[in-house]
Design a protein around this nucleic acid. Sequence first.
RNA 1: CGGGUCGUAGUGUAAUGGCAGCACGAGUCCUUUGGGAGGAUUUAGUCUGGGUUCAAAUCCCAGCGACCCGACCA
Length: 416
Amino acid sequence: MRQTELFSKTHKDFPKDEVAINAQLLIKANFVQKLMAGVYSFMPLGYRTLEKIMAIIREEMNALGASELLMPALHPRSIWDATGRWDTMKKVMYQFKDDGGREFGLGTTHEEVIAVLGKTVIDSYADLPLAAYQIQMKFRNEPRAKSGLIRGRQFIMKDLYSFHADEQSLEDLYERSKRAYLNVFERAGLKAYVTEASGGDFTKSFSHEFQVETPAGEDETLLCRLCGFARNKEIADEKAGARCPKCESGVLEKAKTVEVGNIFKLGTKFSEAAGLYFKDKSGVSKPVIMASYGIGVDRLMGTIVEVHHDEKGIVWPESVAPYKVHLLRLGDEAEVQKFADEAYNHLTQAGVEVLYDDRPDVSAGEKFYDADLIGLPYRAIVSGKTVLQEKIEVKKRSEKEGKLMKAEELAKHLKI
RNA sequence: CGGGUCGUAGUGUAAUGGCAGCACGAGUCCUUUGGGAGGAUUUAGUCUGGGUUCAAAUCCCAGCGACCCGACCA
């Protein structure tokens, strides 16, 4: 991508109202723009990062045997009345009427819709288990949107729903989903703690949250760094400083964390409400057992920035960086242009994702600042100096010193 | 939803009742090009509505909006 063609421009100043680091950096580097509190546009660089994150999520969900689908954001009141949640979720659901007086809500979550869909594919125990997921926009009337991408009124969520004939089948997928979730977060550059939390209205057992430690977090989690045990502070009987109840040798610490995912056993509440039943082996009709599994996709992006940045800007993990290499052309002389164009073409054709700062009349210093701010994993420089040696100067964002190499060498290096 | 802070050019800021100014950005021209270059010139603003006053960006009231603390958070 040539930067002269990119629908994006960095800002010289931090946005004055933002305190959250993820909001400051993502807006300054123009990965996102705020339309109103808790509602963001994803600019080309931000959208590419989102796509990278979504690709990781898709791989892990598909590996669980789940099918991807897409449900509507606009829901009729009737499906929410069936579960009684039209009233109980009044405060968080955007609800409205059309000119004819019909009532609608914008989806806060999709248990109601998926249960209805389940009826079209599930008849018998032989159809189970099944799992389906989507990556879609959710709407919640947050009384207080805050912390940039961490808590929005409109946000992107991956929601997976699973359907089972018995508890054992549910337990099996539930445990496998924990591993899949940890894979997602690890691949995105985050260490997540599987955290015991309240099971909510639907189950007596715990639900599980995936918490990432960062000062920007709005949750408080008691965790044991020794064995990785973690419990939401809201339900914990223990206090900070107490011995870990799991490994019995670590000490529990209170940490600020961001909840990037959660998994819930739903039981049969939604299947019963929607009339989602299956025939077991003896021909008896039973409600399908369900579970739901969520990941806040854009919240995950914000959390990555909270964890991976320095005083100069973002330091993207390679797995989610919008491009792998930021190629900077310093100087507009014909030889430099030609050499830089060739390097860009070579890398691109070799399959390397390159953002090419081909802007004319922009000082070297400004290009350096922008490159540090945007935070791609590798910076490659072409200038009068490097052209003389017929090489480019390559430096990792996370390192101080670069070295000269040919474009072919860089392409080869990145392929490994 | 309670409490607090705050709304001035595209962005960041100054002007504490008396001519709305500065920097960056953007446009044009010239010079520059390894860590946000220099000169010349042009451009653009007081959130909305009401009130007080000879006079309001400034004081008062209301609304709208942003951020922070709390409450809330399938």
